[in-house]
Each structure stands twice: as C-alpha cells, then as structure tokens.
Nucleic acid binder design. Structure first.
Lengths: 198, 198
DNA sequence: GTATGTATACTAACCAGTGAATATACACAA
DNA sequence: TTGTGTATATTCACTGGTTAGTATACATAC
C-alpha cells in the first residue's frame, strides 16, 4: 500500500530515535530499526540513502523540541535571570532521574563518532549547541550583561558537563550542582552583592 | 618465544589504548588490536578473557597518568588557588589543540556504552572522576573553603563540560572559557573582592 | 616433561547495502 | 465507466565482508 510516504518516513525516524538513543549508533543495526518500524530494510533504504543519513535524521528530529523545552522551562519560571536559568537545570535533573534517561543524544553521538569529524551527525549536534548558546547570549545581552557571549559559553559548559557527569555517575544531583554554579556565575556577571555559596 | 608475558600484556594494552581512544570501542575489532600489537587474536585471548576485559584494561591504564598530569600542572603553577586551577584548563587547552586529541577517553567510553550501565569500563571511569573530585575537595578543604565538595563538583562539571564541548565543536578556546569560570567560582567561594568577569 | 605462551584455522552470527520483482494509487484515455 | 501507463512504495533474497570467541596443536623455557 503506497502513498503514505511522509508518515512512513516519520515512523522510521521514531524507531531509529528510540534505538539509537537507547543503545548507541554502532550498536544498532539497520535491520533492527526497520523491524521496529514494522517494515523491511529494503523499504528503509528507499527512504534513506544510508545509515549515516538515518543517524542525521535522528538528531535533526531532536533539535527543535529540545530547544523548545529549555525555552519553556525558562519562560515559565518566575524570578530574575539567575533563577530562570537555574530552573533549566532543576527541570533537567527531574528528567535525568527517569530510568530510561541516557544523557544528551548529541553529545553521545559526537563521542561515539569522534573518529569521523566531518560526519553530518556531528555538524547537526554542533549547530544545536550553537543555537542554545545563541539564545542564551541574546537573552543575557538584553539584560545588560557585559560579556554575554562568555557567560553563555560558561552556562553551556555547565550544561554539557552535567550531561556527561550524570551519565557517568548515574547521579542526577550533579545537575543541581551545575545549576547552582550557573546561578553564581550569572550573579557575578550581574554584579550582585557577593554571597559565599553554600 | 614464551616468557615475556608482562611486556606482552603491556604491549597489548598499548595497542588497544591507541585504537580504542582514536576509533571508539565498538568500531575497533579484537583482530585489529592483535595486529597492532604484533600477535594473533588467539594470543590476545590468552592474556584477556574477553573484549570487555581489554576495554577495562585500556581505561585502567589511563587512570593514574591522567591524574598525575593534573596534579603536576597544579603544582608547577605559581599563584593562588584560582590561578593554579585555571592552569589545569590552560594546559588542557594546549593538549586539545593537538590534531589527534579526541576528548576524554573515560567520558567517550561511558557515552558509547551507556546502554550497559554495569560495564566494568564505566565503573573505572566513574572511579577516575571521583578520584579527581576527591583531590580537588581535599585541596579546597585545606584552603579553608566553606563547602569544598560543592566547589570540587562544580570544577569537575566545568572540566567534563569542556571535554564534551571542545570535542563537539573542535574549538579548544572553550577550555579557556571553562578555566575562567572555574576561577570565578573559586574566587567567589574564597570571598575575594567581586570583580565583574570580562 | 610440564607450565606457559603462541599460532593456524575455524564457527556461527551479524551487518550495510543491493538486484530484481512486485503491488498500489492515480491520471488520463477510450 | 473502464482500461492502461507510470511514479511511488514495498518486499524477498542475496552478497561480500566483518566479528567475538574457540578447538586444537605446537613451541619454548626451566
């Protein structure tokens, strides 16, 4: 039965996403993705020209929803800039306590494919992180922060650090530690009255 | 020619380290490791009971030298606590600019094997990071920091974040950004006179 | 003459990608 | 209304290659 096409492609990406995120790229075979999507490998290769292409689609599908979530958490939190940013980390900690959580798909893919620097999936991951950084930088600039780019980069480092450390230790409390560090850095940049952290 | 034994085992670990770090765990076959070590796979399986065992040996061999390097960079830098810690990041930035640099072997392995939470390699990685954190915590405690554990965790987050971000973007300047953030956090914890970062 | 160490040759499974054929839906003609 | 061509979509069966791990035999040192 032809003529679905877009739904089919969507279904393949859904299946690929679940498998690649949970098991890793190289661990998952194209056959497994096809089986999970309920079709044959040959059909999958009709919609995607290679496994690399499928991996790229997996990450591309994560880009917008991920950023939207961060923006939502930021927007729905009442308070000043430090509090709103810290809220992102608190919400992330909640996600990370879910048993199926396995870190950041972009970072894990870039780690697994580190021997293929030009791989499309890595470019998509890099662009995703740049978008997040840009959003922070713009937000900080609007608040009159002196060096908004530097502060945005520092927050990004804390975010990605917490992804990596929480994945390694399976201890989501690091996510909250990162949030506190972010708050301290933002308060310092704002020139807020100093207050020993603790 | 029998009777070398320990040198042989060592040679295998050396070969495995180069390959696993450069190419990734699942990408590298046991045959490749054996070939690089100049012997057959069967001999390799005489010294290691499985590939997992070999992966564990690869990371175990990285543990001490890595920590020693951080301690060395810290010790050989003149100045206060913030400057000495920042020096670690500066030295790391220099390493990261080397073309063969591919991030932190512990983090990349934990990302690749995230679907096997009990894997020995992940436990070795977690223990390694704990050792680093413990060293920082002890050092901070000796300097009278109020909450040395929290600060040590924050620095660890920045360190591992910079590993991840620099690997993704291939831009070692993030390592220096992380160093500045570390300095800011330490100065804040020390109650130093506030100074807008920038 | 036995522990230790090494090599040859193999198994059984897996995997990315393809060749050839087929089925369906729809446009258009009769 | 009915037949027919064509692009779209799907399947079966296959290839050539790779992989972790092993059965068996052989060599060296002490």
């Amino acid at each position: 039965m032809p003529r679905p096409s877009e739904p089919t492609r969507e279904r393949i990406v859904q299946a690929a996403s679940a498998l690649f995120y949970n098991e890793g790229i190289r661990r998952v075979s194209v056959d497994e993705v096809a089986a999970k999507a309920g079709l044959t490998k040959r059909t999958l290769y009709y919609h995607f020209k290679s496994k690399d292409d499928l991996v790229a689609a997996y990450l591309a599908a994560r880009d917008q929803p991920n950023l939207a979530l961060f923006r939502k958490w930021f927007a729905e939190t009442d308070g000043g800039l430090p509090v709103k940013v810290e809220a992102i980390f608190k919400n992330l900690a909640r996600s990370a306590r879910h048993p199926k959580w396995k870190g950041c798909g972009f970072l894990r893919t870039s780690a697994e494919l580190a021997n293929m620097p030009g791989h499309p999936a890595i470019r998509i991951g890099a662009a995703h992180k740049k978008k997040f950084e840009d959003w922070l930088r713009t937000t900080f600039a609007e608040q009159g922060i002196a060096d908004p780019l530097k502060l945005a980069r520092q927050i990004l480092l804390l975010l990605d650090g917490s992804f990596a450390v929480v994945l390694l230790h399976r201890d989501a409390s690091y996510m909250e530690t990162a949030g506190e560090a972010a708050r301290t850095l933002i308060e310092t940049a704002l020139g807020k009255p100093r207050r020993k952290q603790g």
